[in-house]
Amino acid sequence: MEFILKHKNDEIDLIHTVNSIHEYPAFEHGFEIYANSACCAGILEAVKIGEAIGEDVDNWKEEAEKIRASIFKRLYSPRLRSFIKTIRIRDRHSEPLGYDPFASTVTDPDAVEYAPAYFGLIRDDDIKVINTVKRIHDNLWDEELDGLNRYPESWDRNNGGYGPWPHFTCQLARHYCEVGNEDMAEQYLGWCVEIAHDYRFPEHISTIERFEEWLESYQNAKILQDSKIVMIEGIKSHPKWNDGLAYVTTPLIWPHAEYLMAYKRYSMNFL
């Protein structure tokens, strides 16, 4: 808790990180919604532990509620009627924040703008969540491959080629289960079942054309790391390559966990 809270900025009551779930500082350095939702939820769970063993955790509870309130105020856009991705700030100690040289916001649609509901800070049937999820679906559902992309293709960090991710697809499937939308829950979970190969999920999938576009750009820019070479070999040796698809990083544990959680919700609500 001390480590988390020492990264909290008291002017804005949010946690400052240089990175978050996409491992992409260009769009995540600052006060980012997934990192803040995870930290807030973590503090609230630590409060439960502290209370159970008789510790004084009133300060933790107070700080968590400040962060929760700030997420709803600072990382929500009434104009977009959606949660937003990031408030970019280079240094968490910047005073005032508006004069930080990084000061800006990232309002592009991102799958993790669902994070406040994913981490239980707000109900799925809240209008803020419903509108946020609609915006995510409208902008990030892949028109060619189906499935949910994590962020816009224009962000241009599409390792292995731009394409949909089963774990983020499963996260929104859970939302549709919670609000009783069986058709959308089936669309999202059904896609995951369809793309599983030998009962295994990849990190994400892409087309060979998108893969080649990504590969060329990274080769030309001289930013193709050794680890990417290993990834490329795995993509080209995967059986789905012969079907015209790039299966990136297979298997990956995270989407399997997300699928199990989403299917449990689906089963409880609809079966």
Rank of each mutant, 00 (worst) to 15 (best):
L140G: 03
I87N: 01
A46I: 11
V230E: 13
N36K: 02
G50W: 10
F270Q: 09
Q225A: 15
M184Y: 09
E178C: 05
H204W: 04
G244I: 03
N269T: 15
F119I: 12
I21W: 12
L44F: 02
T249M: 08
T249S: 13
I12T: 08
D91M: 09
P251Q: 08
E143G: 03
E23F: 00
K134D: 14
P166Q: 11
D110E: 14
V248R: 03
G163Q: 06
A257G: 11
E113H: 07
V47H: 05
I12S: 01
V18H: 06
N36R: 06
C40E: 12
T17G: 13
H204T: 06
K222E: 14
R123G: 12
H29Y: 02
L75E: 05
P116G: 13
V112F: 09
E203S: 05
M184E: 14
G180Q: 07
C170W: 05
L260N: 03
H256D: 03
D146M: 10
V193P: 00
V133S: 06
K240G: 03
D138F: 11
G120R: 12
P96C: 13
Q219D: 06
H29K: 11
D100G: 07
A111F: 04
T17C: 15
E213Q: 06
E2C: 09
F102M: 09
N158K: 00
Q225G: 00
S77I: 08
W191C: 04
Q171G: 14
I71P: 01
C40M: 10
T207E: 06
G234D: 14
L260A: 10
H137R: 06
Q171A: 11
R157F: 15
E95S: 10
M184V: 10
W241V: 02
G160Q: 03
R81N: 10
D108Q: 07
Y24F: 15
R123T: 07
K134A: 13
I205F: 11
E143W: 00
Y118S: 12
S20C: 14
Y24I: 00
W191Q: 07
P166W: 05
G160K: 02
R200H: 11
A246C: 04
Q187L: 14
D125I: 07
G163P: 00
I15S: 01
D146T: 00
D243Y: 07
G161E: 12
D243V: 04
E182D: 02
Y199Q: 04
A115I: 09
G160F: 07
G147W: 01
